[in-house]
Every structure is written in structure tokens, then in C-alpha cells.
């Protein structure tokens, strides 16, 4: 136990190395190296079987470039831009989901018997994954026989075509996302974060005459900053690469590509059409976008 004494404020380097080593080794081998390999792959034209052909930045030019056509300038790959738009559109659901999770967590934070039961019941959707649930949502969102439109009809609203219509497919998926995410991991994270809010502070604020909103605004919310930062960061990251499962199982990316996200597009190029290089190039671009977005968020999150 003597090492601790000689350690200066900056001198944790040796210890840090040891602590980091087990994870860093596995991480380098199973994450960092494959990423580097993927970046290298984006410079090649490769169908998995014939020899990879070095093409430089041609994949990126095909992906991001524009060309002059008789009708004016047009993107080389209009699908990429359309699917990027889809991905961003679906990400509009993130703040709604996070707000819902926070609301539920606030309602359920006391941890009474009843509330623990509710927590479990609300958590259910997030773990009922897989094909079974997707089938159920397709049934729910069926324009004619689906439960949702039947309920809407009772209120006198003619329900939309949901997954079968170009305009409503994305809102349909966002609804499903809200259902499955609100009581899920984000709520659990907020519940854990709420444990860290010092009750003395809240009581003091209450004594000072702060209402429920005031206590939330000035005591609870600041204490939840790290949690919110984490949730938003993960939300951004997942949002940019999200939408694969639903597209794969429920809509095949349609109708007319309205539910195809970037990750599904990468999958299509890599595992349906076997353009490994081009798929890697999309992934690298996606990586860059996510990196910039997260870096901005990180700067904002570590400001205080």
C-alpha cells in the first residue's frame, strides 16, 4: 500500500495502464482492428470472392458525388440521400422517447410495491424483442383489420395506411419505437440516476417553497445531467445506425424505400448485392457523421 503515497496528482499512468489493459486488449482486437479493416475495405471493390480491386476514393465519389445531367445536377446515388433523410426523420422520435422515459421514471422513482410492479410492466415491451413482436405490430398497424385503426374509427378518425403508405410508414415505426423504448433501458437509467439526487437538497428546496416543477428544474434535472448526456449520446449513435431490424423484418425498407435507413442500405449493399467496398464506404461516412455529432454532444455535455 505504499505506492499510493508516492503517486502525484498526474502520476497514475502505470496504474491506469494496468486497469485499462484487459479491456483494451480485447477492444483493440475485436473492435479497433475490424474498424481499421473496414476503412481499408472502403478503398476497394470486392465481392467476397474475386480478388479485391483497389479503387482509391471511387466508392466515395459514387456515394457522395454529383454529376451534371440534362436535368441539372443530380446526385450519383440519390438513394443514399433519401435514406439519410429517412434516418434523420426517424431520429425525431428520440427526444420524445427520452422525455417519456424521464416522465415514467419520475412517476415510479419512489419504489413502492405498486411502482415496482409498474416498472416491470413498463419494461416488458423493451425485452419482448424479435419476430413475434414485429408480427404483432404489423397486425396492430394493419389499415383494415388492425386494432389501432379500429380504435381510431371509434373516435371518428379514419386511420391512415401506416406501414403500407409512403407517408405514414415512418410515423408508424416511430410509434412502435416509443412503445418499446419509453419504459425500457432509458427509464432504468433515469431511475438509477434519480437514486443519486440528494434527498436533502430536494427537501430544502421544498422548504424554500419550490413547487414540483421548481424542484425538478433546479434540483433533479441538474443532477440528472450525466444520465441525460449518456442517454442522448447513445440515442444519437443508435439513431444514426438504427432502423435495421424493423426494416428487415417488417417493411423490407418500403413502401418505396420510405423506411430504409442507412444501416439497412449498408446491409443491402454488403449482404444482398455483395458490394463490400461500397458498403464499407457508406459505413465510413456514417461513422464520420456520428463521430462529429457525438463530439459536439460531448463538448456540450462536459461543459459544466
Amino acid at each position: 500500500m505504499t505506492a499510493g503515497h508516492s503517486r502525484s496528482k498526474r502520476g497514475d499512468f502505470g496504474a491506469a495502464l494496468l486497469f485499462l489493459l484487459p479491456n483494451a486488449l480485447g477492444f483493440s482486437f475485436f473492435t479497433l482492428f475490424p474498424v481499421a479493416a473496414a476503412v481499408a475495405l472502403s478503398l476497394f471493390d470486392w465481392n467476397l470472392f474475386t480478388e479485391p480491386r483497389f479503387v482509391g476514393l471511387a466508392n466515395f465519389a459514387d456515394l457522395l458525388g454529383f454529376r451534371n445531367t440534362p436535368e441539372g445536377w443530380a446526385p450519383n446515388d440519390p438513394r443514399f440521400w433519401k435514406f439519410t433523410g429517412n434516418t434523420l426523420f426517424l431520429m425525431l422520435g428520440i427526444p420524445v422517447n427520452v422525455a417519456a422515459s424521464l416522465g415514467l421514471a419520475l412517476l415510479l422513482r419512489r419504489g413502492g410495491r405498486l411502482q415496482v410492479t409498474f416498472r416491470t410492466l413498463y419494461f416488458l415491451p423493451s425485452i419482448c424483442t424479435g419476430i413475434g413482436i414485429y408480427v404483432m405490430w404489423q397486425w396492430l398497424l394493419n389499415p383494415d383489420s388492425g386494432a389501432l385503426n379500429k380504435i381510431l374509427a371509434v373516435v371518428g378518425i379514419a386511420g391512415p395506411g401506416w406501414l403500407k403508405s409512403y407517408e405514414w410508414a415512418k410515423p408508424g415505426l416511430m410509434l412502435m419505437g416509443l412503445w418499446s423504448a419509453a419504459g425500457g433501458t432509458n427509464m432504468v437509467l433515469y431511475l438509477a440516476g434519480l437514486q443519486n439526487v440528494p434527498s436533502e437538497l430536494e427537501e430544502a428546496a421544498a422548504l424554500d417553497g419550490a413547487g414540483a416543477w421548481g424542484r425538478f428544474r433546479h434540483v433533479v434535472w441538474p443532477c440528472l445531467q450525466p444520465t441525460t448526456f449518456f442517454i442522448l449520446t447513445m440515442g444519437l449513435i443508435h439513431g444514426f445506425q438504427g432502423g435495421f431490424d424493423a426494416a428487415y423484418v417488417m417493411t423490407r425498407g418500403g413502401p418505396d424505400g420510405s423506411t430504409t435507413t442507412i444501416s439497412y442500405y449498408i446491409f443491402q449493399h454488403a449482404f444482398r448485392w455483395f458490394h463490400m467496398g461500397y458498403a464499407a464506404a457508406i459505413a465510413v461516412v456514417l461513422l464520420g457523421v456520428i463521430f462529429v455529432a457525438t463530439a459536439l454532444n460531448w463538448r456540450w455535455g462536459s461543459r459544466e
Partner: peptide, 13 residues
């Protein structure tokens, strides 16, 4: 005919 949709469930439905 109802409008057709591209999905795995179309055949089942």
C-alpha cells in the same frame, strides 16, 4: 384488389 405491400407478412395475410 386491396393495395399490395412488399412485406413478408403479405403472403400470410
Amino acid at each position: 384488389s386491396p393495395p399490395i405491400a412488399a412485406s413478408d407478412l403479405e403472403e400470410q395475410e
